[in-house]
Design a protein around this nucleic acid. Structure first.
Lengths: 192, 192
DNA sequence: AAAGTTAACTAACAAGTGTTAGTTTTTCAA
DNA sequence: TTGAAAAACTAACACTTGTTAGTTAACTTT
């Protein structure tokens, strides 16, 4: 369990590199060089390049799945659920900014069974969010605009948060959460 | 000027493939096979793989630049300008859905001088949009929330429109434009 | 029908890919 | 301090990459 430390460094560095150029543009020699070792040495710690991608992407995907599951079943209003979903995204983005890039852009290079599992998680996530919005409309908490447009707009903003967050240092988590909630929810919620 | 026809087919097919797996994951042999020819035959029509990417990305980038320039200098209210920007994105997305994927995810694989030119166009685009928002706030047309959060939220939704548009067939352009305007502007505009 | 042009082909190249085998160095508890 | 375990190394593999050279087939145009 000591070697775990080095493995974590490898995953962290890989995520940084994947973020800049994408999974396929980074060779094992690139990754090794960034760590100051030779490519073959990586294999003392990891099974394959595929495993690296899988560990990076699946961990974050599972965090999202866990988060939305918990929010979904809690007994709060739909608007409060959306607020918590925004917090979930902000938290995961801050903690795994590099990994999220691969979750967005490199997931299609996963191999089975991870690929299938990832897609199921992603679809499941969208569907749970869709149901929350639907219920919010029924309960007159949320405006009756096209659900799919609303869902897409929220998700695309939240999913690409990492592109923008790393560029701005002058904003803290609470402030960011607050402004995201304003932007994403003010246009759709019916009451205060 | 006859060969232009074949060249366009190559670019179109390349954009489709790049969209699915990214520039680096598609080999010249993959591209050739999708066209029913051998890889070497591609070079009767194009100079290099790089040229393919460049033609795909730069054309769309220039459309956006042209569009925002024209909107910027027209004498209409800030809210009207934002409306036109939404229309610009919807139009380009519908016409170049595949290419937009590369504009978002593969631009970093451009070589100089295209890379530099692309980044300048992209930064210029963001800055013009930022100035429109700023003026809208000054003129009390737009709510005085954090400009950068507003800018980012709009852009991330508009830039990833292609991810979602191709999945839905039951929506026409006008309807889409209308709902995007509602979602993106209702939360930030001060009056109707 | 002949000649010329366009666009396909086969074959091959140099360089780069992920990965394995076998060996040496480093780390650190006994 | 010795011996084992961990982690680095060198060298090589089979395969894929973008691209070029040279050749043949398929069209237009005369």
């Amino acid at each position: 369990m000591k070697g775990d430390q080095r493995k974590k460094e490898i995953l962290k560095t890989a995520a940084q590199l994947f973020r800049k150029k994408g999974y396929n543009a980074i060779s094992m020699r690139d990754l090794a060089q960034a760590l100051g070792i030779k490519a073959a040495s990586l294999y003392n710690h990891i099974k394959s390049k595929q495993e690296i991608l899988s560990l990076i992407v699946m961990e974050v995907a599972e965090s999202f799945t866990l988060g939305i599951d918990s929010i979904s079943k809690s007994k709060i209003s739909s608007i409060q659920k959306l607020n918590q979903i925004i917090e979930l995204h902000v938290n995961i983005t801050i903690e795994h900014a590099d990994a999220i890039s691969s979750v967005n852009n490199d997931w299609m290079h996963l191999k089975e069974p991870d690929l299938d599992s990832f897609i199921k998680m992603r679809d499941g996530y969208e569907d749970k969010l869709r149901k929350i919005i639907k219920k919010g409309i029924k309960d007159k908490e949320i405006a009756d605009i096209n659900i799919e447009v609303m869902l897409f707009s929220m998700l695309s903003t939240l999913r690409t948060l990492h592109l923008w967050y790393s560029k701005k240092q002058g904003i803290n988590k609470e402030e960011l959460c607050g402004q995201m909630k304003h932007i994403l929810l003010k246009g759709i919620s019916l009451d205060k």
